[in-house]
Design a protein around this nucleic acid. Structure first.
Lengths: 198, 198
DNA sequence: AAGATAGGGAACAGGATGTTCGGGACCAAA
DNA sequence: TTTGGTCCCGAACATCCTGTTCCCTATCTT
């Protein structure tokens, strides 16, 4: 029975993870090869495969901390600062602030340089949170629940990407305001567009 | 000077294109290798590279027809059936109907099996159309134009993907209604969610 | 019919992947 | 300190994919 993981192993894993982030920032996710990673981290080939099954697996490992951080933030925000129904989508501000703290990493992952794997992983994490919120809200039949879920997550990723790539100087709270406005009220009121009276 | 392209060449290009669609449907875009494609199409290796620079280039070629089809549809719809300002987002219904006609192809491209390349290509085509529409509408300063553009395109792709993968039996017009409602009015009125009175 | 043009296939070199096998560092027990 | 065990690590290998080169041959023109 082994409770604490070997220091050597931890060192190796951290080296691989750092090397991957560094390489993604330098040449993008798709273009980064396992060969590059083990060269940069200076570890052996089989060492890599002893820890991860491939490039994708290594990337996923980095999201564990995101999930726990986000859960903490959600739980500390939710009960006090925001009353249910009047303050929906509690995950968004926590996530924007999390991204603000790890801007380089996020930019490496969600931008054009970060691959589809990272985005789909973030999507999975976010879907969990949004799904929990949606399940407590009554819905009418116009928009199926699953579609609403996907819509919210996509909108969030869109705002996040736009923020990091175009307007990184904006404050997380300002970006969060835009996100909430778009998702809850749409673009109708801010463009003069009208929906047809069916 | 050669006006008409060689029949042999056209035959080869079509064979490669069909093979790729078939393989994407069978095992996904990322997993499909050039080796697979030329085996399936039964053409030589150098023949492939004589026509395309790689897998990505082959995929992009298939979108030329989409762009022209979509332009035609937009131009025939726009002037009569929809008056500006009261019927925004003229591209959407045409695109949904286009997707309805090529369901297999679209499903192969936008689903989980289709890669990021296809999605980003569709995004490019759509962005052109939405950008043209947005440029004719006055905006207030709450939501930057570029963000609104990305938001609309993402929402469209989300609805399109959800439709093809979850509810393919729905009519294009019904899906279009949902899309327009989400983009223009948001989810606020259909969930009971409210935005904070800032 | 015969030369010119251009598409098609075999083969090759370079590189990435994932596995195997043995050496050796770290840890616990005596 | 020694001894045995565990498991991390790296060199080397077979396999596969990629992109290019070279030559053959089908098609077109005169």
């Amino acid at each position: 029975m082994k409770k604490a993981i070997d220091r050597r192993a931890a060192r190796t894993r951290r080296a691989l993870h750092d090397a991957m982030i560094s390489l993604i920032l330098r040449k993008g996710y798709e273009a980064t090869t396992i060969q590059d990673i083990i060269d940069e981290a200076d570890v052996g080939r089989s060492t890599f495969y002893a820890h991860y099954t491939g490039k994708e697996d290594l990337l996923r490992g980095g999201f564990e901390r995101l999930r726990t951080d986000l859960t903490e933030a959600r739980d500390s925000y939710s009960p006090r600062r925001r009353a249910r129904r009047s303050e929906p989508l509690v995950f968004s501000l926590a996530m924007f602030q999390h991204a603000d703290g790890y801007k380089d990493v996020y930019r490496a992952l969600v931008g054009r340089r970060g691959g589809a794997v990272a985005v789909s992983e973030i999507r999975r994490v976010l879907s969990e949170f949004v799904r929990q919120e949606l399940s407590t809200v009554e819905r009418n039949g116009a928009i199926p629940r699953e579609l609403a879920l996907q819509f919210i997550v996509s909108a969030f990723l869109t705002v996040l990407t736009w923020w990091l790539e175009r307007k990184p100087e904006l404050a997380p709270t300002a970006v969060d305001e835009m996100f909430r406005r778009l998702v809850i009220k749409g673009i109708g009121s801010s463009t003069g567009l009208r929906v047809r009276s069916t």
